[in-house]
Every structure is written in C-alpha cells, then in structure tokens.
C-alpha cells in the first residue's frame, strides 16, 4: 500500500513538472531535438526521468497481488500463509491467464468456467474475511475487490469448449417439444391468448390443438409412465391433466 501511495505521489510530481513546463511555454520536443548538444542531452535525460517516474507511479502490480504492509495487524498468521490469501493468489493467477487470452479462445469447458467463477466469488469472500480480521486494510481490500470484479468480467467473456462447435449460422441441437413437459403446459395459455386476439387463423389453432392432444395421449401412455421414476411420473400426470383441462377450455371458447 505504501508503495502504491509513493508511486502515485511521484507520478503527480511528474505531472506538476510537465504542467509547469507547458505553462512556461517550453516546447520540450523542440528543445530535445534542436539546439546545442548539451541542451538536447539534458532535456532528453529530464524527459526520461519523468517517464520513469510516471511508469513507476502507474505500476499497480498487474500480476498476482502482493501481500501488503498492513497485513496480519491483528492476526498471528502472516497474511501469505492464510488459506484465504492462498486461494486469492491461485484464483488470481488462473483468472488473469484466462482473461488475458493467454489460455486461448476456449480456455475451459462449461463446468470449468462455472468452477472458476465460483472460485472468484470465494476470493471476494476471502478478501472480505481478511478485511474483517484487519489482516487487510479497507483501502487494500477495496482495490482487490475492484480488480477481482474486472477479472470476473474477463473470465465471463471467454467461451467454454462446448461452444467450439457453434458456427455463425447453424441451429444448435434442439430438443423436441415432447421432451419438455413444462413447455407443453406453457403453450396452451399462449395459444389461448392468440386465439382470443384472432392473430392466428382458426384452422391453425385447431391443428395445434390436435398436436397437443396427441402429446397428452402420449403422456397418458401407461408404457411411458411405467418407464418414469418419481417425481417425473407425477409431473407427467399433472402436466397431462393441466393440459387436458386447458384444451377443453380452449375448445369451448372456440365453440367446438
């Protein structure tokens, strides 16, 4: 933390010098490229020092975070040895590599992505725990949390290996509607709405009802039900009943 503050102060000092030069109307580029050699060398060296101060001041330690001076204030265990810090370091390293693209465009599978995102969440929780135990100052914890949020965004941006097969134009594998009990029940209120609004020809509604009735029959098939285990069996029964009621209602509304 002290290092960061001194860096920022040095950078500010550099900025002040530059501001003063600009205010005095000094053309530093011209001074560094024309005139006597001694003056060119002096101005170039001065600019180099300013650049070095700026670079030092801006160095936020982009790599793995370093344990800071206020560590373990109220703690017997040194900060680097705490399980929270170890987790933060490991996760940080992995997430940095993923977010920077170092591990390629598909750095993990779907489960791996979830795992890394969960690890990042745990890292944030770790920072908070260290902050609560005064092993980290509020300012340091705040900065770490900000950086972890940036890393999380970088990780989210990367796609899992399962998406390697996705092309810009191709239907992904679709599950047939019969596979989804939930959708069968959901479709009927939508159909009812469409019928009431007269948006779809009546004849079309009739055909859709026929497919729904077929699915209801399928759901009532004892052979199919026998193959289901609880709670799927009960769900199928409930869906069948709900769908049958809605079909009857829809038919009545249509005057059939």
């Amino acid at each position: 933390m002290a290092q960061r503050i001194s860096g920022v102060l040095l950078a500010l000092a550099g900025l002040l010098v530059i501001g003063a030069l600009v205010a005095w109307g000094v053309d530093t580029h011209r001074a560094a490229t024309s005139g006597p050699r001694w003056r060119r060398r002096l101005v170039t060296a001065g600019l180099a020092v300013l650049a070095a101060l700026g670079a030092y001041g801006c160095d936020s330690g982009a790599g793995v975070p370093r344990p800071v001076a206020d560590q373990a204030a109220a703690n017997d265990v040194p900060l680097p040895d705490t399980p929270e810090w170890k987790h933060i370091e490991t996760t940080w390293r992995e997430a940095s590599e993923v977010a920077s693209g170092k591990r390629g465009p598909y750095p993990f599978d779907r489960a791996g992505k979830e795992k890394l995102l969960a690890a990042l969440k745990a890292a944030v929780a770790g920072v908070e725990a260290l902050q609560q135990r005064a092993a980290l100052s509020d300012a340091a914890a705040g900065l770490l949390k900000q950086d972890l949020a940036l890393l999380e965004r970088g990780v989210q941006e990367n796609r899992p290996t399962e998406m390697k097969m996705a092309t810009c134009y191709a239907p992904m594998p679709f599950r047939p509607v019969e596979d989804s009990l939930k959708r069968l029940a959901d479709r009927l209120p939508l159909l009812e709405k469409l019928a009431a609004a007269g948006k779809v020809p009546r004849q079309v509604i009739g055909k859709v009802i026929a497919t729904v009735e077929r699915d209801i029959t399928t759901l009532g098939d004892e052979k199919l039900l026998a193959g289901l285990v609880e709670p799927d069996r009960q769900r199928a029964e409930e869906t069948r009943k709900a769908a049958a009621d809605l079909v009857a209602k829809l038919k009545a509304a249509m005057g059939d």
Partner: peptide
C-alpha cells in the same frame, strides 16, 4: 417468440 412456442416450434434462431 411466444407465437412460435405456441405453435410448437422446437427452437428459434435469433439472427
């Protein structure tokens, strides 16, 4: 999309 679901389409491509 809801029209498609009501009609029973199996999926939608959002292009």
């Amino acid at each position: 999309a809801e029209l498609g679901i009501a009609l029973g389409v199996d999926g939608i491509m959002f292009n």
